[in-house]
Each structure stands twice: as C-alpha cells, then as structure tokens.
Design a protein around this nucleic acid. Structure first.
Lengths: 169, 169
DNA sequence: TTTCTTGCAAAATTTTTGCAGACTT
DNA sequence: AAGTCTGCAAAAATTTTGCAAGAAA
C-alpha cells in the first residue's frame, strides 16, 4: 500500500521496516496502517483515538493489533508514550517532528507550548556526556499560570473563605 | 494523628490542608495517611504500591479512597503523575524533593539519573518569561545507551541476521 | 513449508461509582 | 443537623491473551 505517503511517513515506514527486519518481524499491512495513522496525528492521543482513526480509514487494525504494535513503534523510535500530566495512556508521534516543550498550569490545566533552543543544546550535551544517542525527550514544566496566580493572590488578600462571593468555578 | 512526622511530611500535610480548606474539603485520617505514605516513597511508584503501603501500615485507605485522593494531591502540588516511558500509571512525590532528570535507554530500559543545574536555571527563566510560578517539572531524555549502541554497531558490521548466533536475549 | 500475524472474543487488570454508615464542623 | 468521607462491592473501562485462519519469506 505505498499510497504515495508524505515523505515523513515514508521515512518512518522505512525506519520501522529496518527495525522489524532486525528482529525478524514483518512490516505488514496492518502495521503500516498504524504507522500512517500515527504519523498523521498531532500532539498527544489516546490509544483509543488511534484505533478510531484506523477504523475511519477503513483499514484493518484491530484493538489487539494496535496494542501489540505500539510498543514496537516506541522501541523503533517512531513514537513515545506521552508525558502524563493528568492523563496517562497517551502516545505522541515523535518521528521527524520538532521537539516542543510544555508549560502546564496545575490549577486550570492550561498548556503553553514553548521552544527554547538552549534546552536542545544542553540535552545533546548531556546525552553525549553519558554516551547516549539522543532520540527524543519529554520536557514539561509544571506550575501555576499567571491567571491562576492572580486569582490566588486576590483570594488571599480578600477575607478568608468568602465561599459564594468569588463567583462560579 | 500528629505522629511527629518528619518535617517534610509535616509541611506537605499543612500545604494539603490549606489546599483542601480552600475547597471546603477536609483533611481526614485516610487522606493524611495517603500523604504520609506518598512522602515516604522514593521515585516512581504505581498506585497499587501506594495502596499496598497503606495496608502495610495497617492504616485505613481503600483502593477507592486512594484513587479519589491522588488527583487532589496532584492538584495541591504534592505529587505528580510520573513520566511514562513504558509504564503509565505511576506517580512521583515531588514535594520538597530535589528535581532530578532521567536519561532512558529505549532498548534496554536502563535509566541514568542526572542533575544539571543549567536546566533548572533555564526552566526558571522560561517560567518567569511566561509568568508562571514553577512548581516542578518532568524531564526525561530518551535514546540509546552506550552499551546498546555498541551492540547495534557490532550487529551492523557482522553478517546480516545471524539469528541464532548472537546468543540469548 | 515454516514462521509470523491478525482478529475475535474471553480473561485479566485497572479505575470509577453507588450507597449506607461514620465522621466533622 | 448538614454535608463530607469511607469502604465495599459491583460496574466500567482498559489491556492482554489463546487460538484458528490468513499472509509473508
């Protein structure tokens, strides 16, 4: 099914095939379909969504097969279990993607994406120092966002526990 | 039940209590026990372990209560869902702990801990830039460790696919 | 051929909920 | 008294497995 996939998908498929080959496993139609579905995804996605995507495309790929394939893809460096900040059970396609990091507000769950090249540089440095080949990273800063800080401050300076006065949630 | 807990635990309890109070919730014996158990833990632990710990201590705290309490603790900034690199479903107590980062080998699952102050500094800078109060972070570099790289290289230079010749797993 | 794969459905796990009684305020 | 919690056990949801039939080498 070489449906003229976009180059990134194509490369990922090749990488996966090499990986499978090394283990005497095969790049089957179902596995390829899963790779394509994963590559088409942005950000974090629960396994369930990936299964749904496959169904959408009318492609084979049962729940069981997806569950059996994801670990292989992770090992092949195509995707990773996603960082968890409330949700577990998600994956993230990393192959050929720019790494981006997150700032997460624990209070309101807002997520701000940021890129800061200095991190990338340092990370490479650390990896090198330990002799690792760096293939990806998880990086998430957890804290409280400006809005929530403001609310917190307002609450603190106001009378204690004006339960119903501060408005709805 | 102020069982002369160590100071860190004590502080965590206080913080949790303030948090609960703000939400008109109560710091009950079961919740306090969960905080203590969590604070006594090092590194990542599956929920199941925490439940086990509670049983060990002969303290109340049923599965259901633990499941109901963990999200509160996370929101209060006492612990976080752990980073996932194969395992989901784990938590990590962060309150009052030095942040440490991980280098993970995708192939053999080996984990190397490292500390690199430059990261902490940059993280604070990013948080400040976005107006966040930084409370913690997840940071894990994913790649291939020196040993696995060596094996990979050896395999590559050897004849292709000597399936049974390379020894046991 | 021989070995690896797949899908289905059942089994095993992990999380969430309903409720009656216990505890706090 | 009023409202919050808890534990239990049942319910829901998520993952894993056994197996016979279907591909790939």
């Amino acid at each position: 099914m070489t449906v003229t996939a976009e180059p990134r998908t194509q490369e990922a498929l090749e990488r996966f095939e090499r990986f499978l080959h090394r283990k005497d496993l095969r790049l089957t139609e179902a596995r390829a379909a899963i790779v394509e579905a994963a590559l088409a995804r942005q950000g974090h996605y629960p396994i369930e969504e990936l299964i749904h995507d496959l169904k959408q495309r009318g492609i084979r790929g049962s729940k069981a097969t997806v569950y059996r394939t994801l670990p292989l893809l992770a090992e092949a460096g195509i995707l990773q279990p996603a960082i968890v900040a409330g949700d577990s059970k998600s994956y993230e396609t990393t192959f050929g993607r720019q790494h981006h990091d997150h700032l997460l507000c624990m209070t309101c769950r807002r997520v701000v994406e940021f890129e800061f090249e200095a991190f990338e540089i340092l990370q490479k440095e650390v990896a090198t120092r330990y002799g690792f080949r760096l293939e990806g990273h998880h990086h998430e800063l957890v804290g409280t966002c400006p809005d929530c800080l403001a609310k917190e401050a307002a609450r603190a300076s106001a009378a204690p526990a004006p339960k119903t006065a501060s408005g709805a949630a």
